[in-house]
Computed example of a mutant assay.
Amino acid sequence: MADAPDHAQRDSLHYRAMRDIVERMQDDVPGKFEITKEGIVHDMMAPGRPHELTAARVSRRLEKSMPDEIVAHTGTPDVEGALEGIMRHPDIMVIAEADMEGQGSFDPRTLIAAVEVVSQSNPDNDWVSKLRDYPLLGVPVYAIFDPRTGTGAVLSEIHATPEGPKYAIRKDFVYGEDVTIGEWTISTDGLPLYA
């Protein structure tokens, strides 16, 4: 009689099954899929113009202040921590070009920062789920821009808590102020709001 799989093995099998489902559905179902500890997140709404314009402006502003070997990448692939059972797709990934080489998903521990523009249709994904998942994945800095309110926050300094890793430092900002993400300070002037 075979032994029952242990907890870690079950988690790994469960994650692999979710990953397979996401891969099969990604090209046929509109929207974006991510995997959290709770399961698959499906944002059915394609990001609107204010969301995409915010991501483009923040990315360009970051790249103007960073050395050439660091990029504020807005494309694919995903960031995946298979051991943690999490696959996310930040709106902007601050990462060294050298860490982008190769195949497959990005290792989340190579990110310098993850930047999210809050989705109008699913704000809890950015303010709750990713706030939990990014420190668990080892992403050292997490910046959130919220076009619903014209505010945001930069979170850093991962530390251990009884509930798991969390960010110890949170610096809130309002649009119009300068904000520091990692080592780079950018303006938030002219970022659009949702109508």
Rank of each mutant, 00 (worst) to 15 (best):
114 A>V: 03
105 S>I: 06
56 A>S: 12
110 T>Q: 12
148 R>W: 15
81 G>Y: 09
96 A>K: 15
58 V>Q: 08
86 I>W: 09
52 E>K: 13
107 D>F: 15
125 N>V: 10
119 S>G: 02
136 L>I: 01
96 A>S: 07
63 E>F: 11
110 T>S: 14
109 R>V: 07
63 E>G: 07
90 P>I: 10
102 G>K: 02
84 E>A: 13
135 P>H: 11
128 V>R: 11
105 S>L: 06
83 L>V: 05
79 V>T: 07
138 G>W: 15
53 L>H: 10
52 E>C: 10
85 G>H: 00
141 V>E: 03
100 M>D: 03
69 E>P: 05
135 P>L: 09
127 W>N: 02
71 V>W: 13
52 E>R: 13
138 G>C: 07
134 Y>G: 00
136 L>V: 01
86 I>A: 02
60 R>A: 12
74 T>C: 15
135 P>M: 11
58 V>C: 10
112 I>E: 04
91 D>V: 03
132 R>Q: 03
91 D>G: 08
133 D>L: 07
118 V>L: 00
130 K>I: 05
135 P>C: 08
68 D>T: 08
125 N>Q: 11
122 N>M: 09
50 P>D: 04
108 P>E: 06
141 V>I: 09
80 E>I: 03
103 Q>E: 12
99 D>S: 14
65 S>N: 12
50 P>V: 10
88 R>N: 06
100 M>Q: 07
86 I>D: 05
132 R>L: 01
58 V>Y: 15
106 F>D: 02
132 R>N: 03
61 R>I: 01
97 E>P: 00
